[in-house]
Simulated assay, not measured.
Amino acid sequence: ARVAEVSGAPGAGGQRQHAVTSPVMMTRRDPWVNMLRTTLATLGAGVGGADSVTVLPFDHALGLPDAFARRIARNTSTILMEESHLARVIDPAGGSWYVERLTDELAAAAWAFFQETERAGGLPAALRSGMVAERLAATWAARSAKLARRKEPITGVSEFPMPSERPVEREPAPDPYAGGPGGLPRVRRDEAFEALRARSDAHLVATGERPKVFIAALGPAAAHTARVSFAVNLFGAGGIEAVHRPVSVDVATAGEALTASGASVACLCSSDALYAEQAAEVAGALKSAGAAQVFLAGRPGEYADVDSYVFAGCDTVAVLTSVLDRMGVA
């Protein structure tokens, strides 16, 4: 479902294959990126043998699409066919060992699940027994962990977010599942981060500003730029505005800069070498100036007055949730 939802048995009785770009991939934040996602999904469906593809508008997750979104969706397939010449090749993936191997693995996994379902008494019985729900829940739990740790990044949401972006608003769309019999739960890739961003939005409405984190960069730009960018992206994924003024601080200036930023949380950013020299003292200065929590961008170490660490692969959702809780962001 990451790429497309396909109907029609592959090659069975000459049936035509129709694909629909999956709504699961759509994000509500920075929805313009959805145009790239649906283009790639359409390309994947075409390479996979789909005879026709329905491309969902990029604002599908927000409500009823506007004229621009509908036009872009209509033209996506046309561009791939007429400008990229996707339809001029009978089998675009033919001869690709990589694609053929993935196809074989997918077919084997699908057939194994089909046989398991048959042994359970068929799909209705498998649904009633909870077997399908359990399998989906296990897969979603594993995927949720990857999303939370940004091992599966979502551009504009968990990576390169823009907390200050102007929201795209659309007229609400009717829920096609309203009043239905229930069924399996519906999930979205962006739901954990969307909940965090919604808390930030509510805080903005209530107080006139977003929750803030002070970026305490140590040393020259060459030493701290990489980790500053990392920290700004990480906190931004939770709608927390990063204040990076001045560009660099030390033990003498950190406290005053924290007070001027208006933030109650700070994050140290620099190289491991400068951490060894300055991190403990600067963290102490930040605490003395009123910092409720001091983070350090890097692997956990033994630094006095540093409360928590953020690093590649950390549970970003858990970190951001705890930060917003500590800030009192409802």
Rank of each mutant, 00 (worst) to 15 (best):
V3C: 02
A9N: 08
P10Y: 09
G13I: 08
T21W: 10
S22M: 04
P23E: 02
M25P: 06
T27M: 02
M35P: 00
R37A: 04
G44I: 03
D51R: 07
T54F: 03
A61E: 07
A67Y: 02
F68G: 15
S77I: 05
S77R: 07
S84I: 02
H85W: 06
A87K: 10
R88E: 11
D91G: 06
G94N: 10
G95S: 03
G95Y: 01
W97S: 05
E105A: 08
A112N: 12
E116H: 12
E118V: 07
R119Y: 04
P124S: 05
A125V: 12
L127R: 10
E134P: 11
A138L: 12
A142W: 03
A145P: 02
A145Q: 12
L147C: 13
R150D: 02
I154Y: 00
T155K: 05
G156C: 01
E159T: 13
P163I: 13
S164F: 08
E169D: 08
R170C: 10
P176F: 00
G182C: 08
P185I: 07
R189S: 06
R197H: 14
A202K: 11
H203M: 01
V205M: 08
V205N: 05
K212D: 08
V213W: 01
A217N: 09
A217F: 00
P220G: 02
A226F: 01
R227E: 10
A231C: 05
N233R: 03
G236H: 10
A242T: 14
V243Y: 03
R245L: 14
A252W: 07
A252Q: 15
A257C: 14
S261M: 12
S264T: 15
V265D: 05
S271W: 01
Q278Y: 03
A279W: 07
A280H: 01
V282H: 08
L286K: 10
L286T: 14
S288A: 15
A289D: 00
L296H: 15
G298E: 01
R299I: 11
V306C: 09
S308Q: 15
V310F: 00
F311C: 09
A312R: 13
T316H: 07
V319D: 01
L320T: 10
T321F: 00
